[in-house]
């Protein structure tokens, strides 16, 4: 398995790249470290959306899992007193996974706009519940302030940064191996012609269910990582439809060309937002939206298409 992963060009380069990033993190000023960390966390969710997108599905409701992950972390700390990063992170993935598995039975039967809207509806149900319940923090949410790693309470954010980098490498490698497997190759096949896939003897519904579950787990992981990196959860920043929209935004901006693209796109997004906010406090949304328009018009393949071309020959086999 490990050698299989190392033989994959994308994974090999990603591991090297992320290792360099982790090393660079030691020297980076805190604000850059924070923004990269937020970008990586969001990138995990975008990676899940990429899998769905390649299948031809766009979910406008992955904030549901992002929020479940984030709230799992926050509630576990607030009511359970759990501070361990591994436990909180595991809980985020499990909670999102359970919900993703159950809702998958419904959503796997829908395509296109129906899939998008139904997933949006489910996410807004969670939003409504959170806003109305004071025990769940209502609109104010909670702080997540304690992060320990196996009993050790680190000073500063760097250890958490390394943890998130490691998570991203593992997630990215797993998705890359999945996409190269037989089931993974069905991804684009389903988008192109569902009926043919069925005639080949595969269950489209089941294949979509697996992808949906994977994307839910990734979004849950992203929410959990975000909650720990940011130190705060609340419905508007974690569960609202705007969060789902942001994730779709980053997916389009990144491009579906590679499993590395979501992370690059998400980090770029964080910096665009930071600078837009700094330059135009009254019109920063305009700059962020304008960027997306520009990318759709001039770079239909997303940011990845800029990086892809020089490497196109070597990477062709990875699709």
């Amino acid at each position: 398995m490990v050698s299989m992963a190392w033989n994959d060009k994308t994974i090999r380069w990603a591991i090297i790249g992320f290792a360099l990033l982790a090393a660079a993190g030691w020297l980076l000023p805190t604000w850059i470290l924070n923004n990269v960390m937020f970008g990586l966390a969001r990138g995990l969710a975008v990676l899940g959306l990429l899998v769905l997108w390649r299948t031809g599905l766009v979910s406008f409701g992955h904030a549901l899992y992002f929020g479940l992950g984030a709230y799992a972390v926050a509630l576990l700390e607030k009511y359970g007193g759990v501070t361990d990063v591994f436990l909180k992170f595991g809980a985020a993935i499990i909670v999102a996974g359970v919900f993703g598995f159950l809702l998958g039975f419904v959503l796997r039967n829908y395509r296109a706009i129906f899939f998008a809207m139904l997933s949006l509806a489910f996410s807004m149900v969670l939003y409504g519940v959170l806003v109305k319940m004071e025990v769940l923090g209502s609109t104010d949410g909670f702080s997540v302030t304690q992060n320990t790693i196996l009993g050790w309470k680190p000073d500063g954010k760097y250890p958490l940064f390394c943890f998130i980098v490691l998570t991203c490498v593992i997630a990215l490698s797993a998705v890359q191996l999945y996409l190269k497997s037989a089931l993974g190759h069905l991804t684009t096949a389903i988008r192109d012609n569902e009926l043919r896939v069925e005639y080949l003897g595969y269950s489209v519904a089941r294949a979509i269910h697996v992808k949906y579950l994977a994307s839910a787990c990734l979004a849950g992981a992203a929410g959990g990582a975000m909650a720990m990196a940011l130190g705060q959860v609340d419905p508007d920043s974690m569960v609202n439809w705007t969060v789902s929209g942001e994730l779709v935004f980053i997916t389009i901006m990144s491009g579906a060309g590679s499993v590395v693209a979501p992370f690059i796109g998400a980090i770029v997004f964080e910096f665009i937002r930071t600078y837009a906010f700094e330059l135009a406090p009254q019109a920063w949304q305009l700059i962020v939206g304008g960027t997306l328009l520009a990318i759709i018009f001039f770079l239909p393949g997303g940011i990845w298409s800029l990086l892809e071309k020089p490497w196109a020959k070597g990477e062709a086999d990875n699709g």
Binding site: N34, N35, F38, D140, G141, M226, L230, G231, Q232, V233, D234, D236, S237, M238, N240, T274
Partner: peptide
């Protein structure tokens, strides 16, 4: 933009 954004 929400609390999380404000923290950032």
């Amino acid at each position: 933009g929400g609390n999380a954004k404000q923290v950032g």
